[in-house]
Design a protein around this nucleic acid. Structure first.
Lengths: 149, 149
DNA sequence: ATTCATCTTATAATCACTATTACTTTGTAA
DNA sequence: TTACAAAGTAATAGTGATTATAAGATGAAT
């Protein structure tokens, strides 16, 4: 849960693997680690542009691809239209709240797919589980609104 | 497992809900039910074009959207670049084989996400679980190839 | 047959993402 | 430091799935 520490460690790993840590890449990494929103490319791009007005979307794309290939981030296809990114790489699931539109982390204890290397004779290399519904906060609000009316 | 029966029932449900069953829509439904490949829009379009040369991709798109809204088919985003469709709507998971590229159905027994209405206080309305790996057939081939060499 | 709503088709538009290429930065080695 | 090759960035154009629009076709109801 210590983001500063997580970032330091990620940077250390990348350095040791010979990745050049340019200011642009650092900005992407920093934004990803600090955000808990699972941002999409444009969100990352717009945010970084404030500090680095000359940055190009292509750089954001290429940095994200690099980090993905290095196994440092996860690419989520929970929204049909664009990819979102998650700097947390241990296996967990995601919920897309249809009310507020946020993507939330959902960690599962006894999930059979995420815990096995084989499933029905198939080799499992990666799992993405996307849950669509309504998050606890929005459910709370629903209840409040109902009790008022 | 009786596809003819499945199709009859789907058509009956659609009729009862006032959906006009045009020849084009019927062709999409028929192709979907008969295929066990989780086809994408273009695959469906190309196949139907043989029988209905004048059909437009827009019609395929709109029919799929209609069927999705009616809860008669599932839209899969297991491939990053295009949607695929599954006429089986009871909850099951999918495997994308990185070797042969096929999408296979994987039914799970003791899966906690698919069996609960609530998860960590969030309301679960729909679940899509995408497994990336190698299917059993391709694993078999791998083993055969190894033993030969 | 006329009307009206709905469906289909063709076309253009959108938007995420990729490819290309010229320019800039970085790391390195004298 | 300086020079230089390798790698990274940015601008631009290109691709391809999907959506929007508008004109024509269908089909039921009067």
């Amino acid at each position: 849960m210590n983001k500063r520490e997580d970032m330091k460690q990620m940077i250390e790993r990348l350095k040791q693997r010979g990745v050049t840590l340019t200011p642009q890449r650092m900005a992407v990494i920093e934004f990803l680690i600090k955000s808990s929103n699972h941002p999409c490319v444009d969100t990352i791009y717009q945010a970084i542009k404030k500090k680095y007005p000359s940055i190009s979307p292509a750089t954001v794309y290429s940095t994200l691809q690099l980090l993905k290939e290095m196994g440092e981030i996860q690419e989520l296809h929970i929204r049909g239209d664009r990819a979102c990114y998650d700097p947390i790489t241990w296996r967990h699931h995601h919920l897309l709240c249809r009310s507020c539109g946020r993507i939330l982390d959902v960690d599962i204890d006894g999930c059979p797919i995420t815990n096995n290397k084989l499933i029905r004779e198939h080799r499992v290399e990666e799992v993405q589980a996307y849950i669509y519904g309504v998050c606890s906060e929005c459910l709370e609000k629903e209840r409040d609104d109902k009790s008022k009316s």
